[in-house]
Design a protein around this nucleic acid. Structure first.
Lengths: 120, 120
DNA sequence: AGTAGCCAGTAACCAATAGATACTATCGGG
DNA sequence: CCCGATAGTATCTATTGGTTACTGGCTACT
């Protein structure tokens, strides 16, 4: 069993991580934070159409995973700053290779979709 | 606007692709196919706990995006073989960098989670 | 002759996740 | 003494994923 590699094992790290960063906003949040810390509303406005509840969930998970720090300033109005940890920054490189692939192939994907839709 | 790069633009290729391969099984299916074509049940058994309906949806989307081919053999019992297209194969490299990152950091992530859970 | 099994799905229904909208707490300024 | 700003929470709805059962044509078994 698993002769093609441990991808066939549901407990392998790749599958766990893909399941974690493979949700709707996690990878995007990490990429947005790559140039420096951002506040909650900066992330929310940057992502554009994310419900605050969902953004909070996403950031809490990233914090729990040790990829992001959450710093609360006891001010009024409140200020909360999110930043990447060293481990979070180390994720930028892999995500950037995916991002580059995306930019290189997005046109081909759109073309393929149009062709597929035309035949069906 | 968008002075940090077009990630702040919801229509950028990165966001579209992340939204597409960021679902629950797509990236895993591509990685499973990297060593050669697989039949429907091989993919299903390889992934382990995926409903056939959802796997079908995943594979149809990959086919529509031009990343996977679907070849039907008119036999009984039926045989359907899925394989990566050249574009699908080109996605292996970026996904592998993510996969490698995952394997390198899965322990640190688990540790961070335990610490976080202990403080809360 | 009858039937059970194989494979690649569909159909129908249920659970979990994401999204929309409204609301809260706090405090300084007008 | 009411307003606005920020970082959320509460509630409800919509979308997505999951579970279980079923189909259909042929082959192999009884």
């Amino acid at each position: 069993m698993y002769e093609r590699g441990d991808l066939f094992n549901p407990a392998c790290g790749t599958r766990v991580v893909l399941d974690r960063i493979g949700d709707k906003w996690t990878a995007l949040a990490v990429l947005l934070l790559q140039h420096g810390p951002l506040r909650f509303t900066e992330l929310r406005d940057g992502i554009g159409r994310v419900a605050p509840k969902v953004l909070t969930q996403t950031l809490r998970r990233l914090e729990r995973d040790g990829l992001v720090t959450r710093e609360v300033f006891a001010e009024v109005p409140p200020r909360v700053v999110y930043a990447l940890t060293p481990m979070g920054r180390s994720l930028i490189t892999p995500l950037t290779t995916v991002s580059n692939w995306a930019e290189e192939h997005i046109n081909a994907i759109n073309t393929a979709q149009s062709q597929y839709d035309a035949t069906v």
